[in-house]
């Protein structure tokens, strides 16, 4: 989706999107072209940022820390899943 579509689906302004990308919370190409495509995962991440900031009252520093830790948790979960799968595959043979 385009930046405009992204902003309207999240209910945020383009300045907010600018802020999020400059904070590094969202990864976009820096060309600034409005046709830059954002995906569903960016949208879901944006939704999370909104929940953290607007509804839970987390400040900007906190949001960055939370996103970083969450991405680490997902990385760990994915490795853990693969470890479990490999050991299950080994146990079957």
């Amino acid at each position: 989706m385009t930046r405009e579509e992204f902003c309207s689906r999240l209910g945020i302004g383009s300045a907010t999107l600018q802020l999020w990308t400059s904070e590094g919370w969202l990864l976009l190409d820096d060309t600034g072209s409005s046709s830059a495509s954002l995906s569903e995962i960016d949208l879901a991440r944006g939704q999370l940022i909104r929940h953290l900031g607007d509804e839970f009252g987390v400040n900007a520093d906190g949001i960055g820390i939370i996103l970083d830790l969450l991405d680490q948790v997902h990385g760990l979960r994915s490795v853990l899943r693969e470890v479990l799968q490999s050991s299950a595959a080994r146990a079957e043979r």
Partner: peptide, 18 residues
């Protein structure tokens, strides 16, 4: 977000820092 982040590793926010 977890539905995407947990589904695959190929996404741009994937982190190995943990």
């Amino acid at each position: 977000y977890r539905d995407f982040a947990d589904a695959s590793d190929g996404h741009p926010y994937a982190s190995a820092a943990g």
